[in-house]
Amino acid sequence: MPPAPERPTPGSAMLHPAILVAVALLILNDHVFKARWPSWWTGKLSDVAGLAMFPLLLQGLWERLSTRDARDFQPSRAVLHACVLATGLCFSLIQVSALAGDGWRWGLGLLQWPAHAAWALITDKGWIPPVRPVKHTADVEDLLTLPALWVALKVGWRRCAPLPRAAEEALSTRAA
């Protein structure tokens, strides 16, 4: 008898190999590849990796915040669609609108500030840095990376599928 599939848990979409690879690529590209090999490709790689994983990160955060009993948890396709749509819309807006781009720069700067402030305190700099907006270059060409949302949609869609009856029964038996 084949092993019963794992029941999804809140945020478990982030454990899919494709999403783990996307997160690793995002971090490596931003902190290593861009500095070593600055090019058109490394510029786009972060967008692709970010779009592939960000909707599932949003969905995971939503699931963590909204789920009270993880035993009866079932991921929602409506939430998945909303997260994919929101990611695509926001990403497109910051590439075409200066106002949205500024919102992104200041918003991310605000999220980074606690870490900067904590570092200043730890290293005894004696002053707390102000909120600093991050770099952002609006580039309509970046919209070419939008199809990477399909990865998130595909992984999320399969995860949201109800388990086959046999698998449900196997899980229930195992839990009992």
Partner: peptide, 27 residues
Amino acid sequence: GASIRNWTARAALLIACIGTVATSESH
């Protein structure tokens, strides 16, 4: 197993959050 998976998912969420926030630096 479920508990480990649960905590691994939390860790993956946390790393992804940090990775996302730490993407861009200020000018």
